[in-house]
Nucleic acid binder design. Structure first.
Lengths: 104, 104
DNA sequence: CGGTATACATCATATTACGAGGTATATTGT
DNA sequence: ACAATATACCTCGTAATATGATGTATACCG
């Protein structure tokens, strides 16, 4: 998939991945794999950004000797998901423009 | 509209804007305005990039004393539009993931 | 004659995705 | 016992990109 197109949905995908249930980095990547490939370096960058913008909060735990950081979505993050759905409508209009056939 | 989301469609929008009929910078901006706002600096950057990647070719003309550069889409550019339609299908799957409601 | 529209262009900056590399433990295969 | 793989985190440098600010020049309208 085109890199640029991907960028617009990456943040939101990560939020969607933790929306129903808290999750952690490694799991998020695996959960998203079927629909969207993203590297670890990309994910951790995104997670940090989402934390800074208060879309999620972090809770560090220890699980079987390894560190595990659980991410939990905030109301701000949920709002971001809602906003995205509206942006999606605009995007549909743009697509209609791109896709429109000329009947000449 | 979210900047990131926009990025993925900018190039394709410009290609779509010249698909049926050759056009020039100033006109492209006005034509796209109803569906997508973009500044001149952004457009000229995009046009240059699209030219470098052979998606379009340029023909400079003089129109009423002013320089006017007409952009014409190439087969490569048309192919890019086709590829985008396939990418759009992937994007629809991603949206389905983001939008999915949890019935608990 | 001043403002607005037309029409091009460049530069600096901020944001971003990602590969490459690093650390450390647990599990599985041979 | 040892190697490989999976799990799980992190940082740094780089390349690509959108955009505001700025500049140049002509045409038209009041």
């Amino acid at each position: 998939m085109d890199a640029q197109l991907k960028k617009g949905v990456l943040d939101v995908c990560v939020l969607a991945a933790i929306k129903d249930e808290d999750s952690y980095g490694y799991k998020i990547i695996k959960d998203l794999k079927p629909i969207l490939e993203l590297s670890e370096s990309t994910l951790y960058t995104i997670l940090k950004r989402l934390e800074e913008s208060r879309m999620l909060v972090v809770r560090s735990t220890e699980f079987e000797g390894r560190l595990r950081k659980y991410y939990h979505i905030t109301p701000t993050g949920l709002q971001r998901l809602e906003d995205f759905k509206n942006e999606w409508k605009e995007l549909m209009d743009i697509y209609a423009f791109i896709d429109k056939e000329d009947y000449h």
